[in-house]
Structures are given as C-alpha cells and as structure tokens.
C-alpha cells in the first residue's frame, strides 16, 4: 500500500510526523480525504478532528482548533492553530493592543516619568545649593 508523509504541527509544539496511508480532515468546504498522489491543494481547516490512517491500518485522531492543510506531492502538512480563532476575536485583540498603546502614551505617572522627575528635582536642588554657596562666599 502506498503511503505519504504527514506532518502535524502547532506553533507551540510538534504533534505528529510519520507516514500514513490517508489523512482525513475537516476543510472549510467540507470533509477532505487525502490519499497519496493527491493533487497539490491548500485550504483552511475548521475546528474539528484530523484523522490519520496509519500504514498498519490503525487510526489516530487529533483535535485541531483550525489551521491550514497543505498537500504537496510528497507530503501533507497540517499547520494547526493553538487556540480557536475568529475574525471578531482577532478584531477585539487588535483593539486591545491599540488601547494598550494609547494608555501607555497617556499614562504620565509611570516609573520612567517618576525617575525623570526625581532627576530634575535633584538637579534643581544641586543648582540651589550652588547658588547658596556662591552667595555665602560673596558675603565674606
């Protein structure tokens, strides 16, 4: 029986690699069964199972929360997402990042500012002391 190499990875770890006789996954347009010598294909995956038929007839299951399936003549690659992703969730994350930046810009009482203020204060005190010193010397 012919086999094809299959790699399943997520950004945070390697999940599977080895030779399989078939990969079954939930693509965006529906279930896909990829056998060896499939035409090159690339698609998004929906959250769901990826089923592998191993050489010895066993099956293995993996749950993916979305990702990408790429089919090449020699290899099937599944790039799995680590978390459920949706357009509106991404949007919310982007908004949060913007808010964070605005907050950082607006926030004046941050440690850096305090250090700067202390620095200026120290300089002012030193100048005052120098003036005082000068004045005393002039009197004598």
């Amino acid at each position: 029986m012919s086999t094809i190499r299959c790699d399943i990875v997520s950004a945070e770890q390697e999940i599977f690699h080895g030779h399989v006789s078939m990969v079954i996954a939930t693509g965006e347009m529906g279930e896909l069964g990829i056998a060896p010598r499939h035409a090159p294909l690339i698609t998004r995956l929906k959250p769901g199972q990826v089923r592998l038929k191993l050489e010895n007839g066993d099956e293995q299951f993996f749950y993916v929360s979305g990702g990408i399936l790429e089919v090449q003549p020699q290899v099937v690659t599944v790039l799995a997402d680590t978390a459920v992703r949706a357009a509106d969730l991404d949007e919310a994350a982007a908004r949060k990042a913007k808010d964070e930046a605005e907050r950082a810009i607006a926030n004046r009482s941050d440690a850096m500012e305090i250090a700067e203020a202390q620095n200026q204060l120290a300089q002012a005190i030193a100048q005052l002391q120098a003036l005082e010193h000068l004045r005393r010397n002039l009197k004598h």
């Binding site: 991404d90 982007a94 990042a97 950082a104």
Partner: peptide, 21 residues
C-alpha cells in the same frame, strides 16, 4: 499603533494576535 506587555515566561500566540493584526 499598538502595544502588548507582560507576556510572562510562556508567551502565547493568542496574546500577540492583536498587535500583529
């Protein structure tokens, strides 16, 4: 345009999505 801080010892992709987007 954006900022994210305090990712800790085990940064997650999900925490970076916002700034990248």
């Amino acid at each position: 345009l954006g900022s994210v801080t305090h990712l800790g010892e085990k940064p997650q992709v999900a925490e970076l999505v916002g700034v990248i987007k």
